[in-house]
Design a protein around this nucleic acid. Sequence first.
DNA 1: CAGGCACCATGACATTTGTCAGGGGTGATC
DNA 2: GATCACCCCTGACAAATGTCATGGTGCCTG
Lengths: 201, 201
Amino acid sequence: MIKLLLAEDQGMMRGALALLLDLEEDMEVVAQVPAGDQIVDAALAARPDVALLDIELPGRSGLDAAADLRDRLPSCKVLIVTTFGRPGYLRRAMEAGASGFLVKDGPVEDLAAAVRRVLAGERVIDPGLAAAALSAGPNPLTPRERDVLTAAVDGATVADIAGKLHLSQATVRNYLSAAIGKTGTRNRMEAVRAARRNGWL
Amino acid sequence: MIKLLLAEDQGMMRGALALLLDLEEDMEVVAQVPAGDQIVDAALAARPDVALLDIELPGRSGLDAAADLRDRLPSCKVLIVTTFGRPGYLRRAMEAGASGFLVKDGPVEDLAAAVRRVLAGERVIDPGLAAAALSAGPNPLTPRERDVLTAAVDGATVADIAGKLHLSQATVRNYLSAAIGKTGTRNRMEAVRAARRNGWL
DNA sequence: CAGGCACCATGACATTTGTCAGGGGTGATC
DNA sequence: GATCACCCCTGACAAATGTCATGGTGCCTG
């Protein structure tokens, strides 16, 4: 019996997937969590064979949790299941030791198949996405540039960002300018969108 | 047998829900579409009793399709099933003649229950959301202000927007300023976010 | 140890953005 | 026929934003 952990914030999606996977004769969902900061605890308690993790979760990113899982429960394979096939996400997932990366666009049948393949030691990755990840290259933003850009996502002014990160306003403008340059965009808003699209935040 | 139409762009979600609803003894999914512009055609062909529609779909909004369905296939009840419980969405859904409004956060069991209640002539609406919709009030933005704001979502400059909408730059700035004022925000980006959060775009 | 890189900061500058006070035009409503 | 809301425009001004040049600090690596 393959024991599964399911981390997904949308209740309906989580419930539907759990039901679906439970229908497979050789699978059993032994834990379901709606938040990223519950993943590791639940996994240590339920000891699943495969963890299906969403990335954008409340509390903590599924990617961070994946890295943690690799250390604390190495027997458990990680399969990332996400809405957004962002190149940077795939890259980070691989670095975090994930065995597979699935987008929620595909047919449901892929899911159980992917679980089995992952458990067999294979790596499961959308081929088109893999190409995109390679062509997009690695994240060009420095940590500080990321900080400033993430602080700018919701329309914060330079003063807001400077206050939050304890920087001078001029410094913030410099980082923003650098980020705009590196993303090849024309302003803050475009830079934020570009960075997001690539999974750089 | 209750015949259902399912409109949802995420393949995995669509497949899982379809499977789930088909498991109910008295229900049958007679049509599945991944895009908004396929809803009406599919409904006219399959003649479902209830249509489960997502809002944010490629091609066409589920809300627009709902309004169309009311005219072209009045026998078919509409149940909106969406990720985002935005007050403005709920309001528009009601105006489009929807019989129910569900957010994907809740448990899956709600779904089949909602279908039955809708078919019994009830209105199914999340109570908390209804309150939010009332307290948020109607959309304060004029059509033109909406146009300008939607043109600004991806970081377009004033010149871009003016070009796209064939307006003078000063006019665009005025509409943006008005939108910023009405949303009670400090700049374009915040205004866009606020308008989106309320479902005003 | 030198060079490179990320980090933090300044100051000056041009550009963009947001605001305000106008002026016309339309159509609906009272 | 007056009023009102929306539409489109102008011009001027203050504030915020983006760019550049420059300089100092650490830290790692060849």
